[in-house]
Every structure is written in C-alpha cells, then in structure tokens.
Design a protein around this nucleic acid. Structure first.
Lengths: 193, 193, 193, 193
DNA sequence: GATGAATGAGTGTTCATTCAT
DNA sequence: CATGAATGAACACTCATTCAT
C-alpha cells in the first residue's frame, strides 16, 4: 500500500499530465497544477526541484512505463516478425489505455525540453529488441540499414497512427493494425529476389 | 502616412521561428521576438492581432511554402512511383534548406496551438498527389487502405528521418534517401503474389 | 452649412461622448474614439492638442449648450417663481433630449479632470438668473442663504432626478416635475411667518 | 505558512482611496497603488481578484461604514423631523471626518463601475429610516411622493453641500447645516394649508 | 489637412519561487 | 512535511503620441 506521500506525488504527476495536455506547456503553471492536484504550490517543491524537473521527471516516468509495457512478454527466441508484432500489439494496447500519457510525450518530445533528457534509461529496456533486429539484419531477414531508418518504418508508424492530432479519422481497429503491421514488415524485410 | 514595411514583417517572421526553435513557444515572449527582429514589441501588433496570430500565421506561411516546394514539378502523367519519388526528393531538399522552418512546424504540430488551424489551404496544393494515390489504389498498384495509414508509410518517414531531435545520428545522404524510399514503396505497393 | 472639417470635428465630439458613456474615461482610448468617429487617431490631434484637451473641450461644449438651453426664453421681468420654473422645464427638456450629454457631464464633474476647467464661461450665461435670485433674496421672497445652499435645493434636484444611475425607477413625468418643483420652491421660499 | 496580514490589506485600501482621489480611476494604476501601500503589485492580487474587485470592494467597504455611521443612534420612536436631523448630523460628521472616503464614493458613483455593484447590502441598514419616512407619509406629516423625489430633497443636499468639487466656497458650519436642514424639511413636509 | 505606421512607456495580471510558520 | 502569503520579474498587450508621406 502506498504511503500518503506517494499518493500526493502521484496526484501531482497526474495533474501535470492532465493540464499540459489540456492547455499546453506554456499555460500549465505550477499554481494551476497545484490546484488541480489539490495541494499547495509550495508542496510541489518538496517533491521536485523546480518546474523543469517536474515536467522532465513526468516525461521520464511515462517513458519508463511505456517501455516496459511495450516489451511485456517479449521472447528473444521467437521469430523476429512475431517479436515485432508483439511490440506493436503491446504498444497499441498501452496507448489506447493511456492516451493522456501518450499525448504528453508527443508534446514533450517536440519541445526544447526534450534536449535536457537522457533517454538511455528507458531505451535500455528495448535492448533485447534492438539485438533481435541486429540479428535479423545479419541473417538477411531484414534490410541492413541505419537503425533510425529501420525504426522509421518498424516503430514510428505506431505513434503516427495513434496520434489523434495527426490522424483524426482512422480508428486503429484490429484489422487496421494488422494491415499496417504488414506494411511495416514489407518495408523492412529483405524479401526482394 | 507611412507605407507598410514588408521587410519588417519578414524580420518578425524569421525572428519568431528562430526564437521558438531555440527556446520553445513558452519562453519565446513577444518582447524577445521583437528584440530579435529589431522592432518595438508594439510594432508586432501592427502586423499581427496577438501572439497566437503571430505563431499561427507563421505556421501557415511555412506550410504553404513547404507544400508548393514539395509539389514542384509534379507531373500527373508520370508513373506513381516516380511521382512519389519526386515528392520525396523535393521534401528532403526543402527541409535541408530550411531546417528551421521544419523544426518550427514539428513543434507547432504537437502543441495545442495546432487545434486552432485549418490546414485545408495548404493541403489543397497536395490535391493532385492525393488523386494520384487514389488512382494507384484503384489500379491495384498500391494497397487499398485508409489514407492516413498510407501516408504513415509513404510520407511520414520523410519528416521522421529529417527530425534532428528524433534521429540524431543518421545523415540523409542520397543513398539513404534512396533506400528509405524503396522501403516506403515496399510498404505501400501491392506486390504480394 | 458646415464645412467638411466641421463635420469631422463634430463626429469626434459625438464619438467621445458615446464611448466615454459606454466604457468610461479609462477605457475610452484615442484609438477607439478615432475608430468610432471614422477617422485616424492622428486626425484627432489636428483638432485637439491632446486627449485631455479633447475631453475637457467636449465637456465645455456641452456645458455651453446646456446653459443656453436652460436659459432659453428667460425673462427677467417675470416673477421669480415663474422664472425658476422656466429653468426647470428647459433643463428637463434638454436633458431628456440629450441624455448622453448629461451623462458625460455627470461623470466628468466627479473626476479629477474637472479641476482643470474654468467654468466661468458657461456660468456667465446664468448671470441674469443669478441676479434674479439675489433680487428675490433682498425682497425676502426667498431665503437669504449662501448661493450654493440655495442651488442645492433650487437646481441640483433637477440633475439628481434626471440621473439614471442614481434614480433608476422614477420617470420624470410632467406631474412629477411639478411636484418636485413645488418642493424646491418650498425649500427656498421665505414662507414662514 | 504565513498568516494573512490585516494591516497590509488596510494599507492597500487606504492607498487606493488616496490615489484615486488624487489622480482618478484611470491614472490610479495597480503599480502606483502598490507603491503607495508599500507592497508589491502582486501582493494586491492575494487580497483582491483584480483591479475592478479592488475598486468595487473599497467602495462597498466605505458605503457600509458610512451607512452605519449615518444611522448611529437612530431612534424609531422619535418624531420624524428629529430622526431626519439625526441622520443629517451623523452624515455631516462622518463626511467631515472622512472627506477622502466621501470623495471616492462620489467619483465611483458616477463611473461605469457603479453598474457592477449591488447596493442592497448597505441600503439595508437604512431600512428603519425608510420605514419612518413611509410612516410619516401615511400620517400626512410629509408629502406622499416617489421615494427618489423625497430623498432628492431630504438627503441628497447633504452630499451636494459636502462636495468640495461642486460647492467650493460654502463652509458647512453648524448654522449652515441648521438652515439647510430647515429647507429640506420645508421641501418634504406637508405644511401647506 | 489627413493618415497609417511606429514606438517607448506603461497597463493589469500571472509567473516560478521562497519563506515564515 | 506542508502550507498560504509574499514578491521581483516577466508576461501579453494597449496607450497617447509622433512622424513621414
């Protein structure tokens, strides 16, 4: 069971995400976040060094949760395609359940705040997946290209298709996910002969 | 009576983009933008209704420029793959030349400001390209899927691979562009048999 | 017939009164007055030295018009009570026809601007009336008291009863005016014996 | 946690009245009031919602104080004339002691701010007096006329004669008050036969 | 004479943060 | 640990006024 303090910290965390999503970084003042979390502005400063720390910490926290969720049940011994599919399904499930987290990350990632963050902690969780991709490349299952190019097709479509702002109309039904995944796989797989 | 100074407006426009990219929407105050543009803060209000108008107008201006650049030399009679390739090359060229414009758009798109914008004006320019895609789908050259899913593989990789924040390490050399384009085409083309 | 210039000046005058009544001295900016009068802000400065001059001049102009209207048809040879009644009727008529002028004066009078004004010009018009009062006092028709005390009962009730803000509910019908006038007369007349 | 400082609030209140009287609503900026009260501009906003609230609250506060002072020692069983005289004496005493309060109210009353105020709270204190007047009217001691007409002669002369701006020259000595009161009584009393 | 562009100085207000309790 | 009071600094924006045309 959580201590009363942890509850307060969680309340501040949730209030931050809610407010930033609703009114943006600029308008989400410490005072407003405090009110939303039902604490005094001063209280926030007992948990976070300053506003920047609050925003960055919240981002990192989400990234961690998302990374573990995405890698849940990942099995290195499975075929690469199945592994990748697992990550896709996990990701869509996590995003569907945590739209607010996802939206916060999107906004944060494209802001100057992002430069302050060291992503290594959360990317570490993906390590097994990275290794699997590299192995696949060596085995000529998938293309041997820069890692960033690979993920542009293998992973980024997930976030693009989940982004309410970018893709207003598509509902990511099970069928749509399946099709999109096949497209991703076609993109990265070394199938031409 | 003085006549309006187009140079001054352009200076404000450029200053806005520069500052927003460097320090973000929140920190880019009207006063700072004015100083950067070498005008009085009050002068900005003779060209724009308010800060929001300044930011939104700047966004729209960029979108327009980018849209026409992307569609430059687009030929409806060419084969779809060539047309798409043309858009890719145009886009990468434009982005390479205007990294600051591009960065501004990325940040703007993922901010609450974006909800205020009606994108129809700039997307209108893409109309011939949209028609070409639809024709390609009907002719079974490319997959028949939701338009947003299609662009997630046919166009979005361009912006992802150009994004300095997301892809720090890859240089989009001519070769890398060629490979990435092939992957995009594999994703969308109806090549399974 | 007025020259085009005079029309413009009158437009500025009317715009000033309208706006000050609607939003008050503080909010009635030169720019807004200019817009209301359909001229450029700079144009106002060709007719008035500055904003203070505009407000004060408008006040004086109204005072003049009101003073002459009040004294219209004043006959020194009439009995004092009749003369006073004439002033009452004239005043109520003027105010009824020019509620906006009246309201402007009320607001102006109770503002620090009023200290800047030399009222002698407009009060000069009342001179015959003042003399009549003084004569009445000497003849023991009315009380011999300080002039300001006299007018507090003989004239001020007119403005009080006309003031929309102060007296919301009373309609100054002919009958109400008659009664109020009798009260005023009872107050000032030397009727005790 | 600091406790609220009543002294500070009073200082802001007094500074507001002083400055508004000296330079008017328009020129009395929050910054100037803060400086006069020896607090930070931001501090004013911990006690008042905004400038309007500051001005309106100050007005209401004065009205309350004035209303109770005016009704001090009011005795319903006394003859009406005595009761009214009591109110006159109380009022002149209060105004003499608090010229600044009075001046503030005068300016406020004739400004657009006044429309925002619900006067019922302060007028409630006058209720016994209102009832006494109504009783007097029924007993034919005073005229049966609209309440606003009655007060235009029974009460308004007090404020007119106290108004420095309107009546520059008269000193309201005990004797002058006595005379003026008799005039007021003559105006409202039903003595003609 | 008339104007829209331009601006330094100021507006009311909110900010992130600190501090005494 | 938690807080509301307090604030200097900054915010977006408007002001009265000037100036070149």
């Amino acid at each position: 069971m959580r201590s009363p303090d942890e509850k307060k910290k969680e309340a501040i965390f949730e209030a931050t995400i809610k407010l930033v999503n609703e009114i943006g970084f600029a308008a989400a003042s410490v005072a407003k976040i405090a009110k939303q979390a039902n604490v005094s502005p001063a209280t926030i400063y007992t948990y976070y060094k300053n506003k920047e720390d609050l925003l960055v910490s919240s981002y990192i926290e989400i990234k961690k949760r998302k990374a573990s969720a995405s890698m849940d049940g990942f099995d290195e011994s499975s075929p690469l395609k199945e592994s990748l599919r697992k990550v896709w399904d996990n990701s869509f499930e996590f995003i569907a359940k945590n739209k607010d987290y996802f939206q916060y990350v999107e906004q944060f990632t494209n802001s100057p705040y992002h430069d302050l963050v060291d992503d290594s902690q959360s990317t570490a969780i993906f390590q097994p997946f990275v290794l699997a991709l590299e192995a696949g490349a060596k085995q000529k299952i998938i293309r041997e290209v820069d890692f960033d190019i690979l993920t542009a097709f293998a992973l980024h479509p997930i976030t693009i298709l989940s982004n309410v702002r970018a893709s207003k109309d598509v509902k990511m039904t099970r069928k749509n996910i399946a099709v999109a995944f096949e497209m991703a796989w076609d993109a990265i797989s070394q199938n031409e002969n």
